[in-house]
Simulated assay, not measured.
Amino acid sequence: MAGVMDSVNQRTQLVGQNRLELLLFRLAGNQLYGINVFKVKEVLQCPKLTLLPKLNPVVRGVAHIRGGTLPIIDLNKATGGPGLSDLSTAFVIITEYNYRVQGFLVRSVERIVNMNWSEIHPPPRGTGRDHYLTAVTRVDDKTVEIIDVEKILAEVVPTVENISAGVIDAQTQAEAVSRKVLIVDDSTVARKQVARCLQEVGVEIVALNDGRQALDWLRELAERGEDVSKHLLMMVSDIEMPEMDGYTLTAEVRNDPRMSKLHIMLHTSLSGVFNQAMVKKVGADEFLAKFKPDELAKRVIDRLHAQRDAAGA
C-alpha cells in the first residue's frame, strides 16, 4: 500500500500545474503522435496475433497478454491509412480507457516527454487526418499529433449511448427544463455523447472544447454579475484537454470566489487509482469514468434534487 500511495503522491504533483506526460510514437510514416502516459499500462513488441471471425477491419487480431485476451487495433488503419505491413518489428501500446483494456498497434515507440497543457493546442483546420485529432503540439521543433482515441473506440466498439427506461421520470424532466449544464470536452464524440444524454434528462446544454474556453466563459458570466452556481446546475468536465486540463480548470474555479461554489464533476476516460486522489486535491465534487449514460443521468438528477431541496429548506 505504501508503494501505491508513493506513486499517487508523485503523480499528483502534476495536478494543478497543468502538466502531462506524452508517450511519443510513429505509425506508417515519420509523423510523430502522442498519447497521455496515464492511459498506458505497458509497451511491448507486437506479440503473436490470433485472427477471429467478425472482427472490425481495424482490429488486426487478439493477443494473449498477462493472462488476458486483448483486441489489437491498428491505429494507422483506424485513422484512414493502410494497415501496418510488417508486424515483426511493430510495437503494441497497451492502454486503458473507460475501464476497457486494448492494444494499439504502432510502427515504433520513441520516448516520454513532460509538457504543459498550455503547449497543447486544438488542431488547425486542414491538418492531415484532423477528423481523428483532438490536439497538436511541438517537440524539438517537430509537430506531434494527438489522436482522438475516444472516437476510434466508439467506431470499433460502439457503446450504449441511450438512457435506460425508468431512469428519468416526467417530474424530473419538468424540473430540468429551467436548468443549464456546462459540458467541457475536447473530443467531438465525447461531447456529443454527454450532450445527448443530458438533453434526454431535459437540461439545457452549453458545450465548450477545452478548459481555457470554459474558464473564460465562466469569468465573463461572473463579470456580468451572474451568480455562477445558480446560473449553472453543474459543470461536467473532461480532464485531458488542450490549453488547460480539467484539473487546472477546477482549481481555477475554486480559487475564484465568484464561482467557487459551482458543482463540478470530472468526467474522463482516465481510470485507475490516481484519479480519486487528484479529484480530492483540486476540489472537484465528484468523479465519473466515461461513458455510462445511466450513471451520468443519475448524477445530474441527484444534483437537481439536491438543489431543489436546498432551495426549499
Rank of each mutant, 00 (worst) to 15 (best):
M115C: 10
E145D: 09
V106K: 01
E119S: 12
R111F: 03
T95N: 03
T134W: 09
W117V: 02
F104I: 05
R129V: 08
K151E: 05
V149W: 06
Y99S: 10
L153T: 07
H121S: 06
Y132E: 07
V106N: 01
L105E: 02
V101E: 05
Y132I: 05
N116G: 10
P123V: 04
S108T: 13
D148W: 14
V109C: 09
V149F: 06
V149S: 06
L105G: 11
Y132S: 15
I146G: 03
Y132G: 08
R100D: 15
T127C: 11
I120N: 07
D140P: 00
S118Y: 03
G128D: 11
D130C: 03
T95F: 02
P124M: 09
E96D: 12
I152M: 07
S108R: 12
W117L: 13
D141I: 00
T95I: 03
V144H: 04
F104Y: 14
P122Y: 02
M115G: 04
Y97M: 05
S118R: 10
E96F: 01
T127F: 12
M115P: 05
E145Q: 14
R138Q: 12
N116E: 14
M115R: 11
Y99N: 13
R125C: 04
M115I: 09
T134D: 12
Y132C: 12
I146Y: 03
T134F: 11
G128R: 14
E110L: 13
R129S: 01
P123R: 04
R125F: 01
E119I: 00
I112V: 15
A135L: 10
R111L: 02
N114D: 14
L133N: 12
P124A: 15
T137L: 13
V106H: 06
F104W: 06
E96C: 11
G103K: 06
N98K: 11
F104G: 06
F104Q: 05
D148K: 08
I112Q: 11
I94F: 02
T143C: 07
T127V: 15
R100K: 12
G103W: 01
S118N: 05
G126Y: 09
